[in-house]
């Protein structure tokens, strides 16, 4: 079983075709869309997390590439500057995936990078500016 965050780039001519739905139907893969943007003149962009068996994942990616979709691992990352974090918790109000959560014992804010989908909402909301974008 694997779980990967990927960025899919759709060429302009493929934007209006149903492509990713087949990942579920034909390749037994589950996906969770984290971010999507399509504009008429540009390519489509989809950030999603794919979960499934290793073999299914490989076949699924082959299928996407055969359709002309470019598949990239999600390289953008949010990191926390632990020196600056004061553990106030202002970020908890905006984090959509609970990658940032409060540990009830230490009362410190924990940052679980595995759960982070790099939406960046916490970056500007953090009062001491402890959340940073890494490329």
């Amino acid at each position: 079983m694997i779980r990967r965050k990927v960025v899919l780039h759709f060429p302009r001519e493929k934007v209006d075709k149903p492509i990713v739905s087949k990942l579920v139907r034909d390749y037994n893969l589950d996906f969770n869309i984290l971010k999507a943007s399509i504009t008429p003149k540009e390519e489509g962009l989809l950030v999603m997390e794919i979960t499934g068996e290793d073999e299914d994942y490989r076949r699924g990616v082959d299928y996407l590439e055969a359709c002309g979709v470019e598949v990239q691992p999600l390289s953008q990352d949010v990191a926390r500057n632990d020196e600056r974090c004061t553990h106030c918790g202002a970020c908890l109000a905006v984090c959509p995936t609970r990658a940032l959560y409060l540990d009830g014992e230490s009362m410190e804010v924990v940052f679980d990078r595995e759960e982070c989908v790099a939406c960046e909402l916490c970056v500007k909301v953090c009062p001491p500016r402890a959340m940073e974008i890494k490329y």
Binding site: T86, H87, C88, G89, A90, C91, L92, A93, M107
Partner: peptide, 13 residues
Amino acid sequence: VPTASLSSYARAR
């Protein structure tokens, strides 16, 4: 309603 704090309990402690 989910809550969030602006005051740091960890640092208060």
